[in-house]
Amino acid sequence: MTTGAEGMRLLWLATVVAGLTLLLGLSVAVGTRSVGWSDVVAALGGASGTIDQAAVAVRIPRTLLAGAAGVALGLAGAIMQGVTRNPLADPGILGVNLGASLAVVVGVAWFGITSSQAFIWVAILGAGVTAVFVYSIGSLGRGGATPLKLALAGVATSIAFASLVVAIILPRADIAGGIQSWRIGGVGGATFGAIGEVTPFLVGGVLLALLSARRLNSLALGDEMATGLGERVALARATAALSAILLCGATTAVCGPIGFVGLVVPHLCRLLVGVDHRWLLPFSALAGACLLLAADVMGRIIARPNELEVGVVTAFIGAPFFIWIVRRQRVREL
């Protein structure tokens, strides 16, 4: 027998799943060239005899990558907010995405890496090093790692890393074009091969994140209370953080740095299902996929016959949301 709260959560779950299903359909049907549903069905069945069916065949991997990246970023944002107890935590704001980007750019420019697997491993390493660096800087001084100090450390690190990326690629005309396009953040060049290579990392990150839900509930009570409940706080925080690093690094390697998804999604999901991470994490994953798919479809429609990369659209959505969160929170509380 379900309670009223659980009934509402199940209702919202059905709503989010229905919305995700609709957006998956729109993603393969809508673009610079609109396609009829009969061609969509035919293309899903393997047909590619007409221009419309060929267009759908190109959009299918793009749709899958957008959904997978949205799952990863939404989940990573919820994990980061839970680990740091910071309402401003997000892979972009804390500099993790830029750290992964810098690592990839250094690998391409200085070490000549070319394989997708190398990109993924280097991006995960960069994300991990950056997460440790930002948390260490934010922990200095009185009061430890407060939300405001972490946010400031992350923003400062992002600015510094972005400058380093520009400094590295400016003298390298041979790679500048491709890197600049990748840095915007998008899913337009998706292929089944790239999706297959990144899938094990994303699956591992998702499973590790979901297994951390109970521990994150304990951490939300405070370190002393969590320890009193028998939780190994350092291990719980490290395990959850590892899942976010895997998700951010792997996604950045394939799509480039896409910001604000991990900020917006967990806050909206808390309004729907509350703060219990056993519900919040799955909802953040599904809602993240919805947001990124919707942003990708909007980017194709707004700039027809061209398109806006999904990273640009999420920035337009997320920046006002970030300002609203900051204004909603008292600076003293941050």
Rank of each mutant, 00 (worst) to 15 (best):
I323M: 15
A289T: 07
L271A: 08
A47G: 03
D296G: 12
I301R: 09
T191A: 14
T252G: 05
V96P: 00
V129G: 08
G154Q: 08
A69H: 09
G77W: 07
Q53C: 00
L20I: 11
P282V: 03
I168Y: 07
E6M: 05
G186T: 09
A240N: 04
V206E: 09
A29H: 07
G99Y: 00
L263F: 06
P91Y: 01
D276N: 01
L94C: 00
L13C: 13
A123F: 09
E307C: 07
S136G: 09
Q117M: 12
E231D: 11
I60A: 10
I51Q: 10
A18C: 08
P282T: 10
L216M: 06
P266M: 06
T239E: 10
T3A: 03
G228H: 02
I323G: 11
I93M: 05
L75Q: 00
V166I: 12
D174W: 03
I124L: 10
A14Y: 00
L20A: 09
I93F: 04
L64D: 11
G205V: 14
C248H: 13
L64T: 01
L140M: 09
A151D: 05
M80L: 15
V273L: 04
V165C: 12
I245C: 12
C269H: 03
L293D: 07
L102E: 02
L272V: 05
R278W: 02
T314R: 07
G36C: 03
L292Q: 12
R304K: 15
L23I: 07
A76T: 02
P305C: 11
L210E: 13
G74S: 09
L152K: 12
I60C: 06
T227S: 13
G31M: 07
V326F: 14
T2M: 08
Q117R: 11
S136E: 10
G128A: 15
L65Y: 04
T2S: 06
P171R: 12
L140G: 01
S158I: 07
V41W: 11
R330D: 15
V134I: 10
D174M: 03
T251Y: 13
I168D: 02
E6S: 07
G249Q: 11
V56A: 04
G70Q: 06
A47Y: 06
L73N: 06
A287Q: 09
A55H: 01
L242E: 04
Q53G: 03
T227P: 01
T252N: 04
W324G: 15
P266L: 04
I323R: 13
G67R: 08
R300P: 09
I79G: 00
G99M: 00
G4K: 02
T63I: 13
I120G: 10
R237G: 04
W12N: 04
A54Q: 14
E333A: 15
A244H: 10
V96E: 02
L125D: 01
R142K: 13
T3C: 01
A145S: 04
G70P: 03
F133S: 12
L208F: 14
V30H: 05
L64G: 14
L216V: 05
L44N: 02
R232I: 01
G107D: 01
A287F: 11
L291K: 11
A253M: 06
L211R: 14
G193K: 11
V134A: 09
W279G: 00
T2D: 01
I124V: 14
V275K: 11
A253T: 08
